[in-house]
Amino acid sequence: MKEAWLFTVQRLSALVLAPLVLLHLGVILYAVRDGLSAEEILARTQGSQLWGVVYGLFVFAAAIHAPIGLRAVLREWVGWRGAGLDIAMGLFGLLLLALGLRALAAVL
């Protein structure tokens, strides 16, 4: 049951992330054209609600997607299983969420 849920959530988050990553790749290529600066980044993002919603969704989806994927890799390649792993991955997800929302708050 738990595994089926993790699998389902992983695929759902992937479906959300796929178009966002494509968009993000486009933004990267656009943004680095004439060098990066804090002013340039902030000019693009500050006060933009659309930016906040899109990248907020991005942060949430990534904070779900990355720990589940990492959990699978650690189980299969490192042999780490059980509650300890699940707790560690939960914390990793929370860390990503916290740092991601902090970054979002900083640029909005």
Binding site: A38, A66, G69, L96, L99, R102, A103, A106
Partner: peptide
């Protein structure tokens, strides 16, 4: 690539979070 991105992501977020103080972000950039 997934593992590498998972490792990179916290740093990426952390650096962006520096944008509160423009100077700090510009130092990194």
């Amino acid at each position: 690539s997934g593992v590498a991105l998972a490792v990179f992501l916290p740093f990426h977020f952390f650096v962006l979070g520096l944008a509160v103080e423009r100077a700090a972000l510009n130092d990194v950039l």
